[in-house]
Design a protein around this nucleic acid. Structure first.
Length: 776
DNA sequence: TGCCACGCCCTTTTT
DNA sequence: GGGCGTGGCA
């Protein structure tokens, strides 16, 4: 029976299983946080006889939700687990709104606007209000709107101080109008609308929802924002069975409204809450745990916790200086290869970076070295233009009022409906405050349109009507396939016959595949596949959810790594201004605190081996940055680390000699360990490089610094990589359609994928994506 | 109207 | 480095 499972008897899980009422669990990194929640849920069902459909467990990512569900299936059996409500904040709210949204005027077929869609709305609003896009960048306005909505304020409740604020209020108000008219919601609305349902005493639905859940459990509670917390409190208002699990040291989403005070002040809102601290780390070696603690310790405001581990000391953490990002990538690649040869599975290896922009060079190096990898995040599949186009068609079929979607496809593929026509149509719709689709229905009334455009618009209207009829009875995948043909979308790409078009067709095929997957899952769950459900799933899915458990190296941002763990972790770009990252605006102490917590998260992902790399120079965003080692490196305990430099970093290029002290002949490595004062620790001011002491002769002992020229003799690294038997200039290659050819140039296609220009006899020069080629 | 080329802009993290 | 918008040209 479930309760005999060894996992259920783990001490940390037992500690909280039977507590009633509000419960706060501080779960340190690697202390078995998810286990706490799953055990508690299992216990509620198995021992307390709580019906599974009356338990709600909320997470932040679909992946976390999926994992939790999976574990619960193991503990309780699929039959029982399927009735549990396990999902992300957003997915859970979407589900509730599908059921009860009509009470607050939300149509059943509402669509969810993602960031791109929201930006399109704001851009349109700016035009309508005749505001200059330069003075009021959509991004900024949108950021402001979200910040307000995350606090639960509408345009009327906004506090205004400046002239800019006044404009934002107008934009905000109009933005909301557009969403309402389109039958659309943004991410904030999903939460906000459910809060509205729950808090409005005039609505019976609030009580219905409240009564439905007897127990509410929340994972990663430190990342909740004001509205999410309000939602939780509203849900648990009557029974107070609210169990929150989190770690304030791992709060890394302040920028998106997360408020650490929710977890730090939980006890104030729920004075009778039981508080449990889980401080034993089961995941990492002692050296890794100590290093993580050393990095988080200087944090100014944290709930005191003593993370400890009974695990062995483990290997020293390697801190490696590289010359530049290519040198860094070569080093990482080399170490990954060695790890694989030593028997570590690639699925147990991860490469982290602070920002996506760092991934390209690393990716290139892994690809050339023939090391399989997956990149999590970055340009997302569902955000690719052709995929968005296809989804826009589907969404228009479901909800014709969605202007963003309609305007996206009105002339895609080109069907002779030009900018002028669209402008007049939109003006007509705007003046009457009706959706654009309705304006097309009444196209004859649009006086300033000529006969030809009217005819074309009418043709589009009829096409969409036909497709809509079909969508009512056919399966979503069939609708999509037919739609791509009926609209001429696929044909347009075929005719284009370029590498990019091939890739787009490929992506569309993948989209059809993902609908098939969805349909299979829906049928397995006993549901009829529906377009709305598929679209909702797409809107709420992130790349981290797509992560496959395959034998390949995982590359991701540190944010993406939260909640995951790997045997071996490479933490790259550990330079001041890269990590801690410094964006356009200077950033305050709060942000520095968050960077520190982010570093803590990164370090605690590693089970056994951790390598940190930093470079002297780095090309990023088109310019060169000179970086000094990150302050987080200097916080590491000397006895837990070993420092090295690559060969290239040890013999710096001439241009550095003036900057560093050339007499020593070493790359600048100003990393004498010293405890910083509080003032300099939390400030973004560039610190003075400390003078490097002369390098000591070295063995491989922790705490020492040395340059191992034999080990890191990668001076020929780039040349070596070219010999890996990969596609390069002059190589003979095979293509499905064009046959055998010779590579003329290697380049990066617009889609960010490696592409080559090759000469194929009988076809001439063709640009093709590298993945469609084999070596001849 | 549609295509292409140029130039300008920005540049974190994500449900 | 790259995405996007604009402007000129067919």
């Amino acid at each position: 029976m479930a309760l005999e499972d060894a996992e259920l008897n783990a001490p940390q899980a037992q500690a909280v299983a039977h507590v009633k009422g509000p419960l706060l669990v501080f779960a340190g990194a690697g202390s078995g946080k998810t286990r706490v929640i799953t055990y508690r849920v299992a216990n509620l069902v198995a021992c307390e006889r709580v019906p599974p459909y009356r338990i709600l467990a909320v997470t932040f990512t679909n992946k976390a939700a999926g994992e939790m569900r999976h574990r619960l299936e193991g503990l309780l059996g699929e039959d029982v687990a399927k009735d549990l409500w396990v999902g992300t904040f957003h997915a859970t709210c979407a589900k509730l709104l599908r059921r009860h949204g009509e009470a607050i005027g939300l149509p059943k077929s509402f669509v969810i606007y993602d960031t791109q869609d929201q930006k399109a709305v704001v851009t349109r609003v700016l035009r309508e209000l005749d505001l200059d896009e330069r003075r009021y960048p959509p991004r900024t306005a949108l950021a402001r709107i979200h910040a307000e909505k995350q606090e639960g304020r509408g345009p009327d409740e906004m506090e205004t101080g400046s002239y800019l604020d006044e404009a934002v209020v107008k934009i905000f108000a109009r933005y909301e109008e557009h969403l309402k008219s389109a039958g659309a919601v943004d991410f904030e609305d999903l939460i906000g609308r459910v809060v509205k349902l729950l808090e409005d005493p005039a609505l019976p639905e609030g009580d219905t929802i409240r009564r439905r859940f007897e127990h509410v459990l929340v994972d990663e509670f430190q990342d909740t924002n004001a509205m999410q917390y309000r939602l939780l409190r509203a849900l648990a208002k009557d029974h107070k069975n609210l169990c929150v699990v989190g770690d304030d040291d791992q709060s890394i989403y302040r920028w998106r409204g997360a408020d650490v005070r929710n977890i730090r002040g939980f006890k104030k809102d729920f004075p009778d809450a039981e508080v449990v601290k889980l401080e034993q780390n089961y995941r990492s070696t002692a050296r890794i745990v100590k290093s993580a603690l050393a990095v988080i310790a200087p944090s100014r405001e944290r709930v005191p916790k003593d993370l400890w581990t009974a695990n062995p000391e483990g290997d020293a953490i390697e801190v490696v200086a590289a010359r530049d990002e290519h040198d860094e990538a070569a080093l990482v690649t080399r170490q990954i290869r060695e790890a694989r040869e030593a028997g570590t599975s690639l699925r147990e290896i991860a490469v982290f970076y602070r920002v996506h922009a760092q991934s390209r060079v690393l990716e290139e190096a892994l690809r050339v070295a023939n090391l399989p990898y997956q990149i999590v995040g970055g340009t997302k599949f569902y955000e690719r233009a052709e995929v968005k186009d296809a989804l826009a068609y589907l969404r228009v079929l479901v909800n014709p009022r969605s202007d963003v979607d309609l305007l996206r496809i009105v002339n895609t593929p080109p069907r002779g409906i030009g900018a002028t026509t669209i402008e007049r149509l939109v003006a007509f719709a705007g003046a009457r405050r009706i959706p654009v689709h309705d304006a097309i229905d009444r196209v004859d009334e649009v006086d300033d349109l000529g006969a030809a455009p009217k005819k074309k618009l009418a043709a589009l209207r009829d096409l969409l009507a036909r497709l809509r009829t079909q969508a009512e009875h056919d399966a979503p995948s069939i609708v999509l396939v037919d739609l791509l043909d009926a609209t001429g979308y696929r044909e347009a790409l075929r005719t284009e016959d370029s590498a990019e078009a091939d890739a787009r067709l490929e992506n569309l095929a993948e989209l059809v595949g993902s609908i098939h997957d969805y349909e299979a899952e829906a049928r397995a769950a006993g549901e009829t596949p529906a377009l709305t459900a598929f679209l909702e799933r797409v809107s709420l899915q992130s790349d981290i959810d797509q992560m496959k458990d395959e034998a390949r190296v995982t590359m991701m941002t540190v944010h993406g790594a939260k909640g995951l763990e790997f045997e071996r972790v490479f933490l790259t770009g550990m330079e001041e201004e890269m990590f801690p990252y410094r964006g356009m605006e200077p950033g305050g102490d709060e942000e520095m605190e968050e960077e520190r917590r982010l570093a803590y998260v990164a370090i605690t992902r590693a089970r056994r081996r951790l390598v940190m790399t930093h470079t002297s120079t780095r090309q990023i965003f088109g310019t060169t940055r000179w970086g000094r080692p990150s302050r987080f490196i200097r916080d590491l305990p000397a006895e837990s680390i070993v420092q090295r430099a690559t060969h290239a970093a040890a013999i710096p290029a001439e241009r550095f000699i003036d900057r560093a002290s050339s007499s020593r002949g070493l790359a600048p490595m100003p990393w004498t360990r010293s405890r910083q004062t509080d003032a300099s620790r939390s400030s973004w001011r560039p610190e003075r490089p400390e003078p490097s002491p002369s390098p000591p002769p070295s063995g491989v002992k922790a705490g020492e610094r040395y340059v191992d020229r034999d080990f890191f003799d990668d001076s020929g690294a780039h040349g070596a990589m070219d010999d890996e038997g990969s596609i390069r200039r002059g190589a003979r290659v095979l293509h499905n359609r064009f046959g055998e050819g010779e590579v003329r140039r290697v380049e990066t296609a617009n889609l960010g994928e490696p592409a080559v220009v090759a000469f194929f006899p009988g076809w001439g020069e063709k640009k093709v994506l590298a993945r469609f080629l084999k070596l001849a």
